[in-house]
Simulated scan of single mutants.
Amino acid sequence: MSVLFRAATAILITLVNAAPLQAESLEVRVGYVQWHPDQGPVLSNVLPEPEDAGLKGAELAIQDNNASGKFLGQTYTLQSTRANSEEEAITAFETMLGKGIELFVINAPAQTLETITSRAKETTLFFNAGARDDKLRTDECNLNLLHTMPSYAMLTDALAQWLNQRRWDEVFLIGGPTDADKGWADAFRRSAKRFGLKIVEDKLWTFDADLRRTASKELPLFTQASNYDAVVVADVRGDFGEYVPFNTWLPRPVVGTQGMSPVAWHRVVESWGAAQLQSRFRKLASRDMNSEDYAAWAAIRSIGTAVTGINNPSPAEIRSFLYSDRFQLAAFKGRKLNYRDWNGQLRQPVPLVHPRGLVARAPFEGFLHPNSDMDTLGFDKPESNCRING
């Protein structure tokens, strides 16, 4: 055996021994359940919501998790259901639970979400990517429920901060008749008081007229008042709010659920690397990313970030990591995001947008908080009864 051959063999053995062991394969299974009741015909019918809103965000997050996880031996899979009824959504959840899935993203109304969580195991971890109801963050607290969808209070606080900053202190509020409209309007009334705004008129829209024909006659009369700086609309599903801009008694800006709106996400958000997220989403879904998509994406990316940090798919370990100082979610909003330890809400900036442009991003400079300025949006710890971490 030649000296050269022996030397080459020795080098090969050394390299093999020095090579890192293949990472042990780790499978992370996530369940996604989506259901929203049929709202019936919308009088404006201008901007229909995509039926897969939320689901496509979840699918993109699974792709993102697998892109990084493949280097660590981690594989992420998604089992999803878009249900046609509440009963079907609950059955789908129970089926997934029976298959051993313990990580869930739920895009459903608050009542359905609470029913699903009540039927879970003690170890099951949930992410709320659909319900904005404040009660889930203030009173009806769940130890194993985190919220990636901003609450109504977070959205309306963002709007109220902006109005205060612009010194548009007197507003005309128009609320719709649905429960969602009432939830949004109630949140804004709280925000107005919190940030020093005066609601000079507070009216409920109860008409069922076809505003496509009568808006220029109906709305100027409805919005009559001696003076106001802005009109705030609470029309979540878009029955009448699309026709309020340019049809008010006084020539004033329209904000709220229509006009300039506070949202979790919008296609006009492009800074801080968001343009590449938008591009990847359009390639996947053949449409623009919306708030439901973003909330589902943020939930599954939170799971991926935690599993990367601890190399463990246990719901209890993931939950512990998400509430630790080690967790930071890179979420294309210019800030590293984390969860409030008292109610599980994801802290996040709120974009204020109109259909074709970004106006601003809350929280704004000058609104101070002893811990995080993002806690000026939504119910702060002293304002909430939730203490899910003691």
Score class of each variant (00 low, 15 high):
G259W: 03
P245C: 11
N164G: 11
W272L: 08
L163W: 01
R190I: 11
A160Q: 05
F172Q: 01
G183T: 05
P245T: 09
L163D: 01
N227C: 00
V254K: 02
K193H: 10
V171L: 02
T206W: 03
T206Y: 04
G259M: 07
K203V: 13
T223W: 02
D202W: 06
L204W: 04
L159R: 05
S279D: 14
D239G: 09
A264L: 12
D179W: 07
P251L: 14
R166D: 10
R194D: 08
G256V: 11
K193A: 15
N247S: 09
F195K: 03
P251G: 08
R213F: 12
A264Y: 07
T148R: 06
T206K: 13
V244G: 05
E270M: 07
P262V: 13
D229G: 14
W249S: 14
L163K: 03
T214I: 12
A230H: 01
T148K: 13
L163R: 01
Q224R: 15
T206G: 04
P251H: 09
S226D: 14
L250M: 11
S226K: 03
E201A: 02
F172I: 09
K193S: 15
T223V: 02
E218C: 05
V231C: 00
S261Y: 02
A230N: 02
G259V: 05
W249R: 04
W272S: 14
S216Y: 04
T257M: 03
E201Y: 00
G176E: 02
V232F: 01
A225H: 09
W184V: 14
S191H: 06
N144R: 15
F172Y: 14
D169I: 09
T223M: 03
D181G: 12
Y152Q: 12
A153T: 14
S151F: 08
T148S: 11
A234S: 15
A230V: 11
R237S: 00
M260D: 02
E170H: 07
Y152N: 15
T206C: 04
N164T: 13
R190K: 09
R166S: 11
G175V: 06
R166V: 05
V269H: 04
A275R: 09
A234R: 01
D208L: 12
Y243A: 09
Y152C: 08
P245V: 13
W205P: 05
A153I: 07
E201W: 00
D229P: 04
Q276I: 12
L277I: 09
Y228I: 01
L277W: 08
Q224L: 13
P253Y: 07
M154F: 03
Q278P: 14
R267N: 08
S271T: 04
P262H: 14
R189W: 02
R252M: 12
P177N: 13
L277G: 03
V268L: 05
R213V: 11
P253E: 09
D235V: 01
N227H: 13
D202F: 06
L173N: 03
R194L: 14
L173C: 04
A274S: 10
N247W: 07
E201L: 00
F207P: 01
T248E: 10
V231H: 00
D179H: 09
V233H: 00
Y243V: 02
S271H: 02
G259I: 10
W162V: 08
D186H: 07
S216A: 15
V236L: 01
